[in-house]
């Protein structure tokens, strides 16, 4: 019985983590980590900008080239 509850708990934890990963990836929380990761791999000589600066630049880019949303 206790093994079963343990399994259920593991399953619930995994599902929860997966759902949270999906939601945060979709909403954009991980964008900065992705950028830092990319820089570390592709351009290790460059220092990444701070997260605050990263988001400022990102929104400034969107200001310059607006993306479309559908009806």
């Amino acid at each position: 019985m206790s093994e079963l509850t343990q399994r259920a708990a593991t399953f619930a934890r995994r599902t929860g983590r997966g759902a949270w990963w999906y939601l945060t990836s979709l909403m954009g929380d991980r964008a900065y980590a992705t950028y830092v990761d990319h820089l570390r791999r592709a351009h290790p000589e460059q220092t990444p900008v701070s997260e605050r600066q990263f988001w400022r630049e990102r929104y400034a880019d969107q200001d310059r080239s607006p993306g479309s949303r559908c009806c």
């Binding site: 990836s25 954009g28 964008a31 992705t34 990761d37």
Partner: peptide, 8 residues
């Protein structure tokens, strides 16, 4: 392939 980040 580790970059699992979305970009908005």
């Amino acid at each position: 392939p580790t970059s699992r980040g979305g970009s908005h």
